[in-house]
Design a protein around this nucleic acid. Structure first.
Lengths: 361, 361
DNA sequence: ATGAAAGCGCTAACAT
DNA sequence: ATGTTAGCGCTTTCAT
């Protein structure tokens, strides 16, 4: 048996409470829910009985009647990895504060599993679904005309009418660029991930745009490669060769930045004195383990999750698309990007790797 | 509305199916569940109608009747961090394969939130709870005499009668030691995390025991410090000073190992030629980013999660404590350790950092 | 072979 | 102020 040692053998029903309080079931229900009018004495008697018996209303029965389940599904293709976790936590934060519980589903990026899970979630009558991923690349939606609202977080549906919440890669790149310019750097290189990643392209574009505004362009070519430390090490050498006078490197990820930092050190360039370094992700174990600790762009993943959850809640409450209305004008700067895409601004976390030289004040 | 464009406005009930197939509700139910005997033609008609209407049985109603919910709760204090994620995935793996869905709850190591979540899970009539954490230290249980079985994974309840599944830190330390011995190393140092962590003490103990079996002891003192790269860098210097002839270092974590690797390189010691290096965790971004890539102990976290889930399922099915029976003999080597504690063996992942010197074959 | 009816635990009308 | 009743969607006897 589950709990042989005095555990609650059988769940206590409202019927038991009513019997114990010597009232009818209906009266017990009213007392417990504070509805209707009744003698205070009666109400207290019921409440006391419920308390004593350890009564918990059965949410299945309540839900069956109300036609609601107070649950949502969280589907990730990222195996709850580094990117989807913070998103999840933000979402759970916003949802759990209410009475919504979250079903977790890991699809491992397998469309079959995804379909399977979505089916199961719908069968369970979740009231909404949040889809997260590790890439911001548009992906096919999880289904058309689903009976519940769906929000894509940290990933994006190919269907522009779907609601997606994504990080501001371009803004993050611009942020890094302006910070480096502000600290007096002008020969800024860029080592980043594969060109096929939208995120890499956007970060590079943000950098270039911000530099152009200052009449500059990236030092050397923008170096697209891999999302790895190893590539960071190689890329730094390529960059040093192409632009020996480089005085700052913006990296597409913190991992790349670590590799770059290592090569710079080995080539006798001091960070930040000779070359300033900015990473991307604010992945703390990486950014803090780097020598020196890394200034890096933070995508505010938690905020993405919270926003996704709030959009979902709004859609569920029937406030419907209210939160998103007016976002179809295609405006780009205001944090919204046509369709249902919402862009969450990135922030910059300042650490040693871009500290201004002491002599510079 | 949720889906204005032709979405499923209202869930299809078995009543609708029955009507469409021109049979009674009872017959429809039987047809859908393959129970009772009936004309094949009737069954087909019902199935076709269900298919056409997109019927999904309402699990709330089914559960209400069956007295089951086919859900379990997953409670973590680790904010679904690096350690609990793989455990979670393993658990979800084992559970999701059945028809069990998982509610996720992040307590942020806050007892108030934890209590709150456990209450909510019980109110939802989950059939079991898995508790995960970031530390293996025994912790107070989530409650006594709960109406459902509870399994602690990657953490441990102070109540010895609770079921806990934990990694084999001691065995992992011994594994590392034997591997280093096998590759011909004899002056083996150890740099690890804070002494207050059971995991650090156990890994150190495993190392010492295995070395003792070969008539050796750790080179220099066992260096307890922090779980950080920075400490790895410092610790390596301390070790090189205390035991200049050290020819291998076993580290309490991959992060520490990276720090150690850096210092070794800077002090002119080649890895693995002069000094072999073994980490702990098999945290791939760290272990692969290290130069050279790190041989490291893998705690098989996924297996811990799967095992936890299987224990839970067994307990739920009423097979009850079967899986654990006979484990109260206090035997240590067999993977079981008195009470309800199950220890999952660790493995070793071989990479460059312990490659045998070329001349050695 | 099929249908009718009861009931899972609960809430909300309605009746007393 | 309290009790009675119907019904949420489903399964399962028990009649037919």
């Amino acid at each position: 048996m589950a709990s042989p040692s005095g555990g609650i053998a059988k769940a206590v029903t409202i019927r038991d409470v009513a019997a114990a309080a010597e009232v009818s079931i209906g009266t017990a229900s009213k007392a417990l829910n504070g509805r209707g009018r009744m003698r205070a004495e009666t109400r207290d008697r019921v409440l006391a009985a419920a308390e004593r018996l350890g009564f918990r209303p059965n949410p299945l029965a309540q839900g069956l009647l109300a036609g609601r389940t107070y649950t949502v599904g969280l589907v990730t293709g990222d195996s709850f990895g580094r990117f989807s976790i913070p998103v999840m936590l933000g979402a759970e934060d916003a949802l759990g504060a209410g009475q919504i519980s979250v079903f977790m589903c890991d699809t491992r990026d397998d469309p079959i599993r995804e379909r399977h899970y979505v089916e199961r979630l719908l069968a369970r009558r979740v009231e909404g679904i949040i889809v997260t991923g590790r890439r911001t690349e548009p992906r096919p939606g999880i289904g058309r005309d689903l009976p519940v609202p769906v929000v894509y977080a940290m990933t994006q549906s190919t269907d522009e009418s779907d609601v997606s919440i994504i990080p501001d890669d371009e803004g993050g790149g611009a942020l890094a660029a302006r910070h480096l310019l502000a600290t007096g750097r002008t020969r800024i290189g860029h080592v980043t991930g594969p060109h096929r990643f939208q995120a890499a392209r956007r970060r590079a574009h943000g950098l270039s745009t911000a530099l152009a505004a200052a009449g500059l362009e990236p030092a050397g070519e923008v170096l697209f490669g891999q999302w790895s430390e190893e590539w960071g090490r190689q890329g730094a050498d390529v960059l040093l060769h192409a632009a020996p006078d480089v005085d700052a490197v913006f990296c597409g990820s913190d991992q790349i930045a670590r590799g770059v930092a290592e090569t710079l050190r080995e080539r006798g360039r001091r960070v930040p004195e000779d070359v300033a370094l900015v990473g991307f992700d604010n992945w703390e174990p990486m950014a803090l383990g780097c020598r020196p600790p890394l200034t890096t762009v933070d995508m505010n993943l938690g905020e993405i999750g919270r926003l996704a959850a709030r959009h979902l809640l709004a859609a569920i409450s029937g406030t419907g698309d209210g939160l998103l209305s007016g976002s179809l004008d295609g405006s780009f700067g205001g944090g919204t990007l046509g369709g249902g895409v919402t862009i969450v601004p990135a922030g910059l976390v300042l650490r040693e790797s871009t500290r201004r030289a002491v002599r510079g004040g």
